[in-house]
Simulated assay, not measured.
Amino acid sequence: MKKAIGALCLFLWGCATPPPEPPPEYGVSGKGLPQSSAVIHLAQRIAEDLERHHDLPDKTKLIAVTTPVWLDEIDSSGRLALQLGDGLVSALHQRGFNLIELNSSRQIRVSDRGNLILSRDYERLQGSLPVSQVLVATLSRDSHGVIINSRLVDIASNRVASTSQAFLPWQDSSGYLEQSNSVTEQGGLLYRQEEPGRTPVREVTP
């Protein structure tokens, strides 16, 4: 009798305990990104899209990942773009793509700041690289966040082999973005909005 009562209690306790919730799939469900490591999850989602939508998948082709740029300032980037570019290198490599490091110089520089090989000085970098495809991405701001459009392009033909579209809300950007102020500057003139957030978000500068 005692065994039966004990089994019944265990059964009722099991029914009362809700099953653990599975972790959210950010690339599929469309839910917001977590507050921490948002750019890492964003890069993984873009890499997943590029792999899924590649019309001629060939992971032996050598790919160069360029730094994303702002759509309205095609020659400039920022903290968010630089971090996203590095994140895309990691995310694509983890999916088996063949990547090349663009910022690797010809030799290691030994100094009191450390043993360094990465550089942004074009004179230190390697000349010609056997790259088949290049990943390019643009960032576009609206009042809620940033739209990221990415594409893999064949260098020989300029043919687009794969694309991805993603969105990063400013609230989920881990401090890279902030809501616009009620007073904004455009063309040297100041404009006052009724409330903050009526104009495109801003990138936070350190």
Rank of each mutant, 00 (worst) to 15 (best):
S29D: 06
S37A: 00
L56G: 03
K59W: 05
D172Q: 09
E123F: 08
L118H: 13
E185R: 06
G127A: 11
P206R: 15
S128W: 13
A81D: 13
T67H: 08
D58N: 15
I46F: 04
G175M: 10
F11G: 07
G27P: 04
Y122V: 14
Q83E: 15
G114L: 10
A43Q: 00
A16L: 05
H41N: 00
E21I: 08
A4L: 04
R141Q: 09
H54W: 13
K59M: 04
R124T: 15
S132A: 15
Y122G: 05
L12D: 02
L139S: 13
T184G: 01
V69Q: 00
E73N: 14
A47I: 02
S164L: 04
L168K: 05
S164Y: 06
S104Q: 02
P22D: 10
D86H: 12
K2F: 11
C15S: 01
G187W: 10
P169C: 08
Q83I: 15
E25D: 11
T184F: 03
T163W: 04
L189M: 15
A4Q: 09
S77G: 13
D86T: 12
P34A: 07
Q44A: 03
G27I: 12
E123T: 14
T184I: 14
Y122M: 12
G188E: 10
E178M: 15
V136D: 15
I155P: 00
D112Y: 11
A161F: 11
P24A: 05
I40M: 05
K31P: 10
F167V: 12
L8N: 00
R198Y: 02
S150F: 02
A81V: 13
L129H: 14
Q35P: 01
L88G: 06
L99F: 07
E51G: 01
L71W: 08
D142L: 11
L42F: 12
S182N: 14
P206D: 06
